[in-house]
Write a protein that binds this DNA or RNA. Structure first.
Lengths: 341, 341
DNA sequence: ATGAAAGCGCTAACAT
DNA sequence: ATGTTAGCGCTTTCAT
C-alpha cells in the first residue's frame, strides 16, 4: 500500500504536522527531527498525495498550455520544442502541464479548454498567435497567464518573446557585411508581431548602413508562413526584381520555399542569390546548401515561460514582466559574399 | 466562490449524497429529483472538484503518455497527431493526458517519469518504440498500459497498431498492378515491428503475384528512418541495381529521401522510377511530384488507444485486446505504369 | 519546536 | 428513493 503522511509520522515518531512542516519548509524544525523525517520519507519512498494537497490548498499544481492546431502540427517542431522546455522545467517545479490545442478559427461558440471550465489549472501558458476572442473570453476567468512568442492585443500580460528585432538586425547586417545591397525581405503572417519585428530589424540594419529601404523588395502577406508561401513570395519577388542578390525570409520554412523556387529557376545558392532564414528549425537535413539562419533557443523559451508563470503563482502580485530571449546568427552555406553577375 | 456539492444540495433541497448519485449515476434516483439536481448544477455552473474526488476514490483521472524525444520532435507530425487523437478523446471521457518524453537511450539510471513515481496517473499510453529497459522498469508499477504503434517484447499488453502488413501489401500490389517487376524495399529502423511488417507485406504481395523475392532489392538498416536514411539507402540501392523501376520506402520521410536522391541523379519520377511511401505525413507540400503513399489514420490511432485504456480502467479485468487500424492506398503522382527504359 | 485537531469536497457504506 | 456520516491525506490554525 502506498504510504501516507501518517506512516511517516508514526515511523519517525513525530506528528503528521511536523512531517508536513518538513516537507513544505513552512515552519522551523530542529535539524535532527528534520533529518529523521527526511530519512523516513526516503526509506518508505513516500510521495505526498497530490489530490489531498490540492483539496486543502485549493491549488491544482497544474499549468495549462494552449496553442493552435496548426502551430502544434507544423512541419517544423518549433512549438513542440517550446512545450518540451516547459515540461522539462515543470518537472523541477513539481507542476504538471496540461496541453491542449484549439482551432485557429476559435470563435464565440467553441467551448473553452476543459481545464479552464473545470478550474483544473493554476496558471496558463499560451504559445504563438491565438484568436483575440479566446483571449478575451479567457480573461473572465482571471487565471494568471503568460504569453510565449506572441504579443496579445493590449499587451498587458507577462510575456516571453524572441528578440526578433535584434534577429532581423543580425540577419540583415550579415548580408550587408557580405557586400549585398539589393536585399529583399519576404514573409507571410505579417500581422504576427514576430514577423513584423523581424522586418523592423531588417529596416533598422539598412538604415544603420545608410542603404535606402526599397518597398519593392519587401514582399509580405498574411498567409501561413510555410514553405509554400516562401515559394510563392519568391516567385513574385524574382519575377519583378532580377537585381536581388539576397533574401531574408521571415522564417526557415519560407526560406526553404525560397530555395526551392531559386533551384527550380536555375539560380545557384549562394553564388547567384544568398538566402538567410530565421528560427533554425534543424529540420531539413537534406537541405542543400545548409541554411544560414538566426537560431532561436526554443527550449529556453519554454523554460523561461514556465519560470515566469510559477513566479507569478508564488508571488501573488502581478508582475507584468517581459522577457526577451536573445538569438544568434548561425552562418552556414546559403549565404556568401556578393559578386556582380 | 466556486460552488461545492453542498451548495447544489442546499439549493436543490436534497442531500449531498443524492447529488453525488445523480452526478455519478451510481444509484437510481427519481426522474424529478434528478432533473431538479441537474438544473441546479447547470444554473450554478458547478463542476465537481477533481481533487476531492481523487482523494476518496484513489483514482487520479489522469492518463500518462510516454514517447521518446526523437519521435515527438520528428519533422513529420506523426506522433503529435496521435497525441492529439488521445487528447481529443480524453476530453469526452473526462481524463487529462500528462505528456512526457524520454530520451531514446533511456537507461537504468534515468529516473522514471514523475507521474509514475508520484502515482499521478491511472493508466499509461506508450507511443512508438521505446527502450525495453523502460518497459521492464515500468512493469513493476502495475499500471494498466496500452501500446500504440509498437509491439513491446513479450507482446502481452493491449495494443493499438497500424495494419502494416496490409499496408505493405497494398503498396507493393499497387506497383505490381502498374506493371513493375523490379520493386525494391528500403527502410531503416528495421527492428521496429511496423517497418518489418511493411516488409512482410511487400514479400507477401510479391509471392501472391508469383514474382521472386530478390534480397538484393531489399535494403534495410537500423538507422532512424528519416529523409537522410532514405537518401543513403537509395544511393546504395541504385548504385548496384540500375534495373530497379520502383521503390517502396518504409515511410514517407525515407521516400522523400529517395526522391531527393533520384532527382539529384537525373532520374525522372515517376517516368524512370516510381516511388511509394507509407504514413501520409501531409507535410511536404512542396514535394514534386506528390507522393503516392499508404495513409495511416494517426488521430484515429490515438482515439482508439484512449478508448482502450479507459475500457481497461473501467473493467478491471485485463483484456489483452489488440486493435488493428486499417490503412488506405493514396494514389498521387509519384507512381505510374512501368515502361521499359 | 512540536502537536492536536478541524476541515477541504467528495464517495460510498450504511441507515431509513 | 433518499439521507447520514465516516473518512480519503493532507495543510494550517491554535495550543503547548
Amino acid at each position: 500500500m502506498k504510504p501516507t503522511i501518517k506512516d511517516i509520522a508514526n515511523k519517525a515518531g513525530v506528528s503528521i504536522a511536523t512531517v508536513s512542516y518538513v516537507i513544505n519548509k513552512t515552519k522551523p524544525i530542529s535539524a535532527e527531527t528534520k533529518n529523521r523525517v527526511q530519512k523516513t520519507i526516503k526509506s518508505l519512498n513516500y510521495h505526498p498525495s497530490k489530490s489531498a494537497r490540492s483539496l486543502v490548498t485549493g491549488k491544482t499544481g497544474n499549468i495549462g498550455f494552449i496553442l493552435t492546431d496548426d502551430h502544434f502540427l507544423r512541419t517544423e517542431p518549433f512549438y513542440t520544442r517550446i512545450f518540451l522546455g516547459t515540461e522539462f522545467e515543470a518537472r523541477g517545479e513539481g507542476y504538471y502541464i496540461l496541453l491542449t490545442s484549439i482551432k485557429p478559427d476559435f470563435n464565440e461558440k467553441d467551448s473553452l479548454p476543459r481545464f479552464i471550465l473545470n478550474k483544473s489549472v493554476d496558471g496558463l501558458l499560451i504559445a504563438g498567435k491565438i484568436p483575440s476572442i479566446l483571449i478575451s473570453r479567457l480573461s473572465a476567468y482571471n487565471i494568471p497567464t503568460v504569453f510565449v512568442d506572441f504579443i496579445p492585443p493590449g499587451n498587458n500580460y507577462p510575456l516571453v518573446l524572441i528578440d526578433n528585432i535584434q534577429g532581423g538586425l543580425l540577419a540583415t547586417s550579415h548580408l550587408i557585411n557580405l557586400g549585398h545591397r539589393n536585399i529583399a525581405y519576404i514573409s507571410g503572417d505579417i500581422d504576427h508581431p514576430s514577423l513584423s519585428d523581424r522586418l523592423s530589424g531588417y529596416k533598422q540594419a539598412l538604415e544603420n548602413a545608410k542603404i535606402p529601404i526599397r518597398n519593392n523588395l519587401i514582399f509580405t502577406n498574411t498567409n501561413y508562413p510555410d514553405r509554400q508561401n516562401g515559394f510563392y513570395l519568391a516567385k513574385k519577388l524574382f519575377t519583378n526584381n532580377k537585381e536581388v542578390t539576397s533574401v531574408f525570409a521571415g522564417n526557415d520554412a519560407q526560406a526553404i520555399g525560397v530555395m526551392h523556387y531559386l533551384k527550380d529557376n536555375g539560380y545557384k545558392i549562394p553564388k547567384d542569390v544568398s538566402v538567410i532564414g530565421f528560427d533554425d528549425i534543424e529540420a531539413d537535413l537534406m537541405l542543400d546548401p545548409p541554411l544560414t539562419t538566426i537560431r532561436v533557443p526554443k527550449v529556453e523559451l519554454g523554460v523561461e515561460a514556465l519560470r515566469l508563470i510559477v513566479n507569478l503563482l508564488k508571488n501573488k502580485k502581478s508582475i507584468h514582466k517581459k522577457i526577451l530571449i536573445p538569438v544568434d546568427l548561425i552562418i552556414r552555406n546559403s549565404t556568401s559574399a556578393y559578386k556582380p553577375r
